[in-house]
Design a protein around this nucleic acid. Structure first.
Lengths: 236, 236
DNA sequence: ATGTGTTTCAAACAGTCGTTTTAATGGCTT
DNA sequence: AAGCCATTAAAACGACTGTTTGAAACACAT
């Protein structure tokens, strides 16, 4: 009988999002990435997840130890290359402008945002998924980031803060941290609710391409970052 | 015996966060506000919630019908006055500058952000709570907003978009929507993870006051909003 | 063929969740 | 006093959660 559509219930090997011959771990990671992205980490049950992946219920605990460990694996799987490429981008910029010389603000921000947008292209249609999963990592309760990713995150924050301090030397370091914080917020909002923007811009000019989105973000954040610091009247 | 500390387990009426004589609905709303704020809507069980409020487990379903209805009630309870004051602020600004005349960008943004910060003062120490609860409303899965609040939200969005169009006439409407979107992100990030900023700024000058935070946000968002629009090369 | 280690499978575990139920209160009018 | 209503109370319901179990299936070496 039916074998055309993507049934979710029975069958030993229902149409899976992965190649049916890939390893169980791979299938779990891919299915988890998909489901976590549009339902959240806690809302996806292991039964739903393993069923979508076409593997046994116990596979998660066997291969990863626990659901939390699977979540960490999913996050680390795409957070790490993003942060690595961020550092590579910044390395290239700094060596191009000479060590100790300031790098233009827009270039720094582009180096920070770009890995999100290019890494999306590897799996074609998973763009929306990737966006939302990233946004979820940045805003889920308790800043749900695996321990193993924290050192790299700290390195990224430190390096970019340092580069920014050279780019906008008229700002005290504290203000730079605040604005880095705000910039994270712009990114998270864009990643999580980008479909809301698609609705707004729908009548106009098709869907916004990742490059367009990037341009809009850079315009906004670069201006916000370079803004003069209205003197706080608490001091002096 | 013991009645000094805040026991959470037994007793007919353990030390509750509300006046012990207030109504059951009131106690539930107050306790829910507190718990939802720092644990998230789905992570708080009704048993934990009713215990903290000092009421019976069935009280939630009796007075509100379901847990979801309680969540909606909690959200609506403080979202509505915030949006009402936003409209009042904008009314005041527009009548002060004359109908049809542009209102300064920073004033518009202040009118938008200020209700968050002043409304916080009503319950003294609940400032952090209020911040996080609001942030959660804006970023939880499915944009968890009660139906009853949507008309007011739409009115706020429309009115402010209109005012902004007069304030930054050099921008097409689509860009204004994008930047309104980004501004939401800055707000949500600030509301949710403000304690992260307290850690960063700790060694320096005490805690940031709400007014300082507001000043930082306005500096960033006003500049981002007024930024020139780098021409998108897709058209023309 | 035999043994070894890894992986899969169906089934059950103990626990929590939101909700419902039924009985026991309390205050109020008639 | 009796009767009625809204509220509270304790207990149980069924459904779901993540996790564990012990046996079956497998690949692959000896």
């Amino acid at each position: 009988m039916a074998s055309t559509t993507t049934r979710s219930k029975p069958g030993p090997r229902p149409a899976a999002p992965t190649a049916p011959d890939s390893s169980t771990q791979e299938r779990l990671l891919v299915a988890a990435e998909q489901l976590f992205a549009d339902q959240g980490f806690e809302s996806v049950s292991l039964r739903h997840l393993t069923q979508a992946a076409g593997v046994n219920l116990a596979a998660v605990n066997y291969h990863f130890g626990s659901k939390d460990a699977l979540i960490d694996a999913v996050i680390e799987r795409f957070v790490t290359p993003v942060n690595q490429q961020r550092l590579e981008n910044l390395d290239g910029l700094e060596s191009a402008h000479g060590a100790g010389n300031p790098v233009p603000l827009r270039d720094i921000l582009t180096a920070f945002f770009q890995p999100f947008l290019t890494r999306v292209h590897r799996s074609e249609l998973s763009q929306r998924l990737f966006f939302k999963l990233m946004g979820r990592c940045m805003s889920d309760p308790g800043s749900r980031l695996p321990e193993s990713t924290l050192p790299l995150f700290r390195a990224v924050a430190g390096r970019f803060a340092q580069a920014l301090q050279l780019a906008v030397p008229h700002l005290p370091q504290e203000i730079i941290f605040w604005r880095l914080h705000f910039t994270f917020g712009v990114l998270a909002q864009t990643l999580m609710h980008n479909e809301a923007m698609e609705q707004i811009t729908e009548g106009r000019a098709g869907k916004p391409s990742p490059d367009e989105i990037l341009a809009h973000i850079i315009d906004y954040c670069a201006a916000g970052f370079a803004a003069p610091h209205s003197a706080s009247d608490t001091k002096v």
